[in-house]
Simulated assay, not measured.
Amino acid sequence: MSMIETMEAEGGEAVSLHQRILSDISEKILSGAWAPGHRIPFEHELTTEYNCSRMTVNKALSQLAKAGLIERRRRSGSFVRQPQSQAAVLELHDIRIEVEALGLPYRYERLARLKRRSSADDRALLGLSAPGLVLSLECLHFAGQRPFAHEQRLINLAAVAEAGEEEFLGIAPGPWLIGRVPWSQAEHRIRATAADDHVADALDIETGAPCLVVERRTWSAEHPVTHVRFIYPAESHTLVARFTPSQG
C-alpha cells in the first residue's frame, strides 16, 4: 500500500490513522461540536483528509456505528446518532411530543389517503362485524431531517364520518382523532419485524433492518374507531411500562 497508514504522535508514539479518525470524530460528537443528525463527511472526503485508504475509513466508521455514536444510512451516508426516544406503552402518545422531547424539530407528511369499502383484512384489523367505509392513511413522521416513524392507519368512517372529508395534510390523524372522538378503550400490540422494501425506503434504512412495531386499536363505547401501525427503526426507540402491584 502506497499510502501512509500511521503517523507520529507527540513523544514519537506511532498512532494508526484508524485510531486517529476514531478519536477525531468521537471528540467532535462527545463535545457537542457535531450535534445529533449532523452528517459525517463522506468516506471519500475522509480518505482525502487523512490521506489513507477507503478500507481504513470504513473500518473506523463501522466501529463508531457499533459503539452507537453514529448511524450509517442507505444512500445518505453516516450521521451522528439521535438520542433514543422513549414512549410509554400504556399511553396514547403523540409522536410530536416524542420528537420534541429529543430537542428536535418535528415534521409530518401524509404519503397516501384512500377512502374505500372495507376488505376482510380491514375488518379483522378494526374488529368490524360487517362491511362499511374506511379511510386508509399512510404517513411519515420526521425528527429533524431523519424519518422517525412510518404510520399505517385505518379509520372506521361509521364511527367518525367527518374523517372522510379531512385531507390530513396539515395535521396527523392521531391528534386529530384524539381531539374529536372520546375513546373508552385501547389495545396495544408490540412486536419486532424486518423492514420490507417499502418501509425501508420510507424510513431510509436497509431492507431487512430490525424495526419495532406498535399496533393500536381504539374504541369509543362499543364502536371501533381506528387501527394504527407505527413502525420505528429498532435502534432509535424504547417502550416503557410503569405499573403497580395488583390489588387482587
Score class of each variant (00 low, 15 high):
Ala35Ser: 14
Ala33Tyr: 12
Gly68Val: 07
Phe243Thr: 13
Glu43Val: 11
Ile178Thr: 11
Gly132Ser: 10
Glu162Lys: 14
Gly127Val: 08
Ala200Lys: 09
Ala161Tyr: 13
Ser2Lys: 13
Ala101Trp: 00
Glu109Leu: 12
Leu69Trp: 09
Arg217Thr: 10
Ser118Gln: 06
Ala112Glu: 09
Pro41Thr: 00
Leu128Asp: 01
Gln19Lys: 13
Pro36Thr: 05
Ile205Glu: 03
Lys115Pro: 06
Leu177Tyr: 04
Val15Cys: 01
Asp122Trp: 10
Ser118Asn: 07
His223Thr: 09
Leu64Ala: 06
Gln145Glu: 15
Pro182Val: 00
Ala65Lys: 14
Gly144Trp: 06
Phe168Asp: 10
Arg81Leu: 02
Arg146Cys: 07
Gly174Cys: 07
Arg72Cys: 04
Gly144Cys: 04
Gly12His: 01
Arg242Gln: 14
Ala234Asp: 09
Pro224His: 09
Val214Gly: 06
Val99Thr: 06
Tyr232Phe: 13
Leu137Tyr: 06
Arg191Gln: 14
Ala163Lys: 05
Ala161Lys: 15
Val134Met: 03
Arg110Met: 12
Asp197Phe: 13
Arg191Leu: 12
Arg75Gln: 15
Asn58Ile: 01
Gly68Tyr: 01
Glu5Ile: 03
Glu162Pro: 09
Glu98Cys: 03
Asp201Glu: 14
Ser184Ala: 05
Gly103Trp: 05
Pro147Asn: 08
Ile205Trp: 01
Ala200His: 07
Ile95Ala: 06
Asn156Ala: 10
Arg75Trp: 15
Glu13Cys: 05
Pro224Cys: 06
Asp197Asn: 08
Thr207Phe: 08
Gly144Lys: 02
Leu239Ser: 12
Glu222Pro: 00
Ile21Lys: 02
Ala9His: 14
Ala67Asn: 10
Leu137Ser: 10
Pro182Cys: 06
Arg153Pro: 00
His150Thr: 02
Thr47Asp: 00
Glu187Cys: 00
Asn58Val: 05
Trp176Arg: 04
Ser246Gln: 14
Pro210Arg: 05
Ala101Tyr: 00
Leu114Trp: 14
His44Ile: 01
Ser184Met: 01
Val99Gln: 05
His237Pro: 04
Asp201Trp: 07
Thr244His: 06
Gln84Lys: 15
Lys28Val: 01
Ser246Leu: 14
Val199Gln: 09
Ala186Gly: 15
Ala241Lys: 13
Gly174Phe: 00
Cys52Val: 04
Thr244Glu: 11
Thr47Val: 04
Gly77Asn: 11
Leu46Ala: 02
Arg153Asp: 00
Lys66Trp: 00
Ala241Val: 03
Arg39Asp: 00
Ile21Pro: 04
Cys211Phe: 11
Gly103Tyr: 02
Val181Trp: 08
Ala194Lys: 13
His198Trp: 11
Gln152Asn: 14
Ala186Glu: 14
Ile40Arg: 00
Asp197Ser: 15
Ala186Thr: 11
Arg72Asn: 02
His188Gln: 05
Trp34Glu: 02
Ser129Cys: 03
Leu125Met: 10
Pro233Trp: 04
His38Ala: 08
Leu203Cys: 07
Val80Leu: 11
